[in-house]
Amino acid sequence: MEKFLTVDDLKVHFPTPDGVVKATDGLSFGLDRGKTLGIVGESGSGKSVSSSAILGLHRGTSARVSGSIRLDGTDLLAISNQEMRRLRGKDVAMIFQDPLSALHPYYSVGNQIAEAYRVHHAVSRKEARTRVVDMLARVGIPQPDRRYDAYPHQFSGGMRQRAMIAMSLINDPSLIIADEPTTALDVTVQAQILDLLQDLQNEFNTAVIIITHDLGVVAEMADDVLVMYAGRAVEYGPVTEVLTHPEMPYTWGLLSSVPDVTADTSKRMVPIPGNPPSLLNPPPGCPFNPRCVHRHKVPGDLCRTELPALIPGNRGEDHLKRCHLSNPEMIYETEVVPQFDPALAEER
């Protein structure tokens, strides 16, 4: 059965004077209602570009989008601009990273949220206001009736992000795309916002895509995780699977290069050498090969000449990896192993 959201071979290319930037190059994934997909990657890996394609935000720009994005059976790339407008903010909503620049400074917070509601519903201002005040209360803003008339600058960072969430939920969307929703926030506020997002997801049975570079956030929030590198998915599968047994050296590198608050202090922080590649001239073969310390374990010059396919690894059908290493155990041969104990993972 087809998933609620199915993205197939999505490509977003930007022609520039220097050549075509392949920001997203052949991305496929699926997501069911009530589930959360975490998309992880460094800046420039194409995670935000891909998700804005779902909302049709590249329409009217020079971007060339191809492939298919099917939401509940509708192909979002085939529908007209008018149909897209009807869907945007109603069925699919987005939470942006920086709530201060995503909210209009001249309009009161309440009016902005009410506008989002009235675009899609023929209701009076008064009815819209009641609905917005309810929503503000639902996301935990104290004195919502008075806060309705406040302006964004009068809100703190966490409150603004709550207002953004209220705005995205006002039309009961079936899919929420949260693009780095907590990156601009402090940890204690981040914890509040993540809890809120999860509560609301359970209540409304929403599908959520959460884009982040924080593996901790993904581990706590997501059911599936998609690791992106240079515009491509390099590893995709259930969170518990991918983060405990990464089969692609990049994922492994990400996990061993971030410290965590509970790890053994003798654990070393192993950096990934080099820098992320340019999307204009991606390296031939596997995009990660110039930084991959396991490259020499692959016979021949395969990593530099041929792009590996995204195929199931050794641990089951739903754990996909894009790597030539036939035996991922080779990654663990090194002294440093990923920071979790597989035995503990089994207990879950």
Partner: peptide, 27 residues
């Protein structure tokens, strides 16, 4: 990033696992 001085171009050698590990420190 286009103008970035790429140090890890395909022509250059990738450090080996041991080299990477020798640069890594515990707390």
């Amino acid at each position: 990033s286009d103008q970035t001085v790429t140090e890890g171009t395909a022509a250059e050698e990738v450090p080996t696992v041991d080299e990477v590990l020798s640069q890594a420190h515990a707390a």
